[in-house]
Design a protein around this nucleic acid. Structure first.
Lengths: 249, 249
DNA sequence: ACCTGAACACCGTTCAAGT
DNA sequence: ACCTGAACACCGTTCAAGT
């Protein structure tokens, strides 16, 4: 093991050949126009792949074939860039939701809404926490349902199915917390898990957290470990819809 | 105060502690022992006050009266420091929960549990998102209920009140998503809100997001804006407990 | 034993300057 | 009009050196 090696091994696996852009070759130079939309979409792609913390003005620039400073012409700063990322996925969500009047019942409508939001969360598990926790533009917009357009369309749908105004507000709130809880949990659980141990001595051990001090947890570990997010989501969604139906009187 | 001697004492076991102790440092006491616990508690205090993004190894060090590098003797790095912060507040939560057998019914027991977790979230609104979204140590621990000790004690309580193993797992999961949804929402909404506009000309305006394109949202804005988190939490908690009662058969 | 100085490889952001 | 070089004030982290 460590001979007097002076070379510092940094624990990062960065620097694998990325750049295929940067002019060179390709007779046409093919410089993308580089507008705000291009930047935001690249940012979404990058976070999907590498996670929020790896997104850096400099790295995003190089991914687009420009220096970081060029981005400031289109985006005021890193924070607003992240806001823009949230905007992009919310727009995807808006576009993926069907019109209210294409369903046979309000139950089906709400089901479809919920599934559309879940689709966004599972398509972008590393972005969903941003949707969930960035401060909303208006204080009465609740994460993760935080776009005016989305809320307007939702209220429209509820109106179409005959829900009154008070009921609509209650439903919007119940939906928000329901979706936030389930989807954030699902996003969080789908992510890597703490990347410990850089040393290459031990490999095993790990999995066993020494649960001997926690007998009940140990006993239930197999059941706790079997996650059925699909089923859990569907069951809880049905529950929620049933409760709404009951309160409709 | 003394100072009969003239001339600067050179060498000498420097107890001086004079000097740069930045602002918030307690004036009097000389050098704190600086162990892991001290560091973690200071980190909690700092995030409570300034938020996660402002917490920096260098700033935390200066808050404790040392250079940043001194922290690395007690904490492996910034990420693990944040993990430690989560540990600290989870320990507070464990200590604040009463023993299961001090309640008259399982309903009361669950109520108390839920309120204890909510207490943690509202005491540390800037830390709760960390509790909610850091990858859990074991993949079958769900945020925000992510400490082995907590889960063990919870399972113990459910056992005490006669819940079977399967029911306990179901309840643990339902509780997780319930608490995650409600408390994360509450934390997120209690935070500053996007700090736009640095100009000091107008104050008003702002509030009106030009909702003319969103008539239904505009109409419901007053009701949407009136947040009653207490009531909402209590109502939803009762609902959850009622559902558990029903499934108990 | 515990802490610091100095150094390295990064950051976000600004601004004058290039084309 | 759009981009870059250079610079500034920060970061996390390592390591040899101080006491």
């Amino acid at each position: 093991m460590g001979s007097g090696n002076a070379g510092p091994q940094n624990g990062q696996s960065l620097q694998h050949g990325v750049g295929l852009q940067t002019s060179t070759g390709r007779g046409g130079t093919a410089r993308r126009p580089l507008d705000r939309k291009t930047i935001l979409h690249e940012a979404v792609r990058f976070i999907d792949e590498n996670g929020r913390d790896k997104l850096t003005m400099r790295r995003l620039g190089s991914e687009l074939g420009v220096e970081a400073m060029a981005l400031y012409r289109y985006v005021p700063g890193r924070e607003q860039l992240l806001d823009g990322v949230v905007e992009v996925v919310m727009k995807e969500l808006n576009d993926s939701s069907g019109a209210a009047d294409t369903f046979d019942s309000w139950q089906e409508y709400l089901q479809q809404i919920a599934h559309a939001v879940r689709g966004m969360a599972t398509a972008h598990p590393k972005i969903f926490p941003l949707v969930a926790s960035r401060p909303p533009a208006a204080p009465w917009l609740r994460p993760p349902l935080r776009s005016l357009q989305w809320v307007e369309s939702f209220l429209e749908g509820l109106d179409y199915y005959g829900f009154g105004k008070d009921a609509s507000v209650v439903i919007y709130r119940a939906f928000s917390t329901f979706l936030l809880g389930h989807l954030l949990l699902e996003s969080a659980m789908s992510l890597p898990g703490t990347p410990e141990m850089g040393a290459e001595d031990d490999i095993e051990v790990y999995e066993t957290n020494d649960l001997t001090a926690y007998p009940r947890t140990l006993e239930l570990k197999p059941q706790l470990a079997r996650e059925e997010f699909d089923e859990e989501f569907e069951d809880a969604l049905e529950d929620l819809i049933d409760r709404i139906a009951l309160s409709r009187t």
